[in-house]
Amino acid sequence: MTVARAAPGRTRREIHEARARKRGIVIASLSTLLVVGAIMLLVPLAPGWEAVQKSFFNGEVFLKTFPKLLQAFLLDVAIFAWCAPLIAVWALVIALCRDVRNPALYPLRLFAILYTDIFRGVPVVLVVYLIGFGVPGLGLPRPWNSPYIWGSLALILTYSAYVAEIYRSGIESIHASQRAAALSLGLSKSDTMRFVVLPQALRRVVPANMNMFIALQKDVALLSFIGPVEVLRQAGVFKSLLANFTPYVVAAIIFLCVTIPATRYADYLITKQNRARS
């Protein structure tokens, strides 16, 4: 039997924790290896594996389509890049309208309530279709019939409804004592909102909004239904051209390269915030 000897500067607890950690790493590695090994052995035994491998995981097609698909993905990023700031601003307008208490401004409040109800209640793809096909149908002259404009608008309108609700939850999460402190100094209600409540609320909802914007980046692909040749559309073109599904896998991998780091970062922010508050 070995007796844990106290190394200089290490407590018995530290020695125990270091050992437990080491043991944990070994066990986790072994079990992961086992599962992955089993999958790699068993899946190729399935009768259709060869066909699937050829049409979904074709290395040659992968290399051939990757550069073009990456280029098409830049369009997704561009659409995201102009939609995101507009959503951030428009959602704030909606959130503030919902909190209006002045009776003369009641129509604004009603509008905000209807707005969030409607756009949260309709599938995004339906809004994209309705606006993306509907508005250009009015026979607007170029460039006002562009699907980029109306497709982006559909995303902006829908996502603003969700983000507005996130803002509102943030505003409501600010403790009433903060408002009381500001009002007691003689600040107006709008100054209290602008200088005391909003700055704290916006900071608090950053992680939740991050998740919304990750979802937005994925939903940009819905615009492919009304015209723009972004990555999903481009993958579809390649699929028809090469009679192979690998381009879809390529597109999925490209999306994951962006969304996984972004989700991890959002999770990190949430953990950090929870720790700060507890």
């Binding site: 004592s177 903060q178 402190a181 500001a182 005391v196 704290q200």
Partner: peptide
Amino acid sequence: FQSFNLFP
């Protein structure tokens, strides 16, 4: 206030 209520 009792709880200071400074703006953090």
